[in-house]
Design a protein around this nucleic acid. Structure first.
Lengths: 192, 192
DNA sequence: CGAATTCATCCTACTAGTAGGTAGATAACA
DNA sequence: TGTTATCTACCTACTAGTAGGATGAATTCG
């Protein structure tokens, strides 16, 4: 049993992932969960506060996911594989076919500052996590890095987000896996 | 001297690039170019038609750009460099800090079908052009491709779009160049 | 115990403002 | 002259957000 506030955030997340900040309204949420608009305003007085809370929750879930990956598997190569598989699955079964923060990043200039700063923070922490995994992998001679782990992490992150976009543009979930797997293979020291 | 219709498209393009399909209105354009809303409707009866025309124009400009690159420089490596430099410059001087179609691709599900199909078409032709450049470069031993040119083109395109997103998220235009140059360097057969 | 009170949740009904779009008059132009 | 471009004025639907009341479940008080 989930709370009303959580249900509101769930619907809002789905709608944001589908079309961004400006593509959803309180009325949409109202219709989706069978509650009056005013009741949504009771839980989240303004749209900015709603999305702020939403991004906070998303960041928390992401952080938990990262920690979980690092606890469950020890090999940096497998850790990266887990991260990529997560999105591969999300996109394939259409459960979360886009990163909330990647979606919002495109609208950065139009977002309330409270939201924008949190989106930026997500990008920072994701880049940091990827860099740490890449660095650990490089130290264990699992990855071959041409540049600093931080730089390679930026490339990888961009590829992942771009692959989400391409999968959507081509309406082909498998394209995400194809792009990301190519990049993953390039990181692994193949035939060296 | 540009026509009113072109001025409308110019403003609309700037606004779409800033926040997507749902983040601009006829009133915004009206304010920007000092013309009444109704006059915009004279040129573009509906918003869908406006954006459809806009994407058509953008695709035409892109096509012309590609052709121009292939006429002016012969080396596939330089052709690719030209393409990447174009975006590097656009993003750095903030003239066109995002690809219109990449922006719209994120909102694919909410777009009018006429717009969506054109966005898809842009992705197809861009992927095709990149693949042809990569293939030519591989044949001339300028690029080292791990996979088929079509697959490598998809990776490259995703990286470019993802780099646009990152540059925006981090509010750092130079990040685009850093990401894209790393990927470019990887394509070139550097001492391997 | 039971009554009074607080509180959270949800509601109906409303606001001011904006969305995309239309009708019809007027002006400029070929 | 008719055609193209622009205007004023308006429409309906929707936007985020507010005011104030009904319900019911805790909590406090006599």
């Amino acid at each position: 049993m989930t709370s009303t506030a959580d249900k509101i955030l769930d619907v809002a997340q789905t709608l944001i992932v589908a079309g961004g900040y400006n593509a959803f309204s309180y009325a949409d949420i109202s219709d989706a969960i069978g509650i009056r608009k005013a009741s949504i305003h009771h839980h989240f007085p303004t749209k900015a506060e709603l999305v702020t809370t939403l991004v906070d929750r998303y960041r928390q879930q992401t952080e938990a996911g990262m920690t979980s990956i690092q606890q469950q598997v020890s090999s940096p190569a497998e850790q990266l594989r887990f991260y990529l598989n997560f999105w591969q699955t999300c996109i394939r079964d259409a459960s979360l076919p886009f990163c909330v923060c990647a979606m919002l990043a495109g609208e950065m200039q139009m977002l309330p500052e409270d939201v924008a700063s949190r989106v930026r923070a997500h990008f920072h922490s994701l880049a940091k996590w990827l860099a740490s995994v890449l660095q650990a992998g490089a130290e264990q001679r699992l990855f071959r890095l041409d540049k600093r782990p931080e730089d390679e992490a930026q490339v990888l992150m961009a590829t992942v987000h771009g692959a989400m976009l391409s999968a959507r543009a081509f309406n082909d979930p498998d394209l995400f896996a194809a792009i990301v797997d190519t990049q993953m293979a390039r990181l692994l020291m193949q035939g060296r």
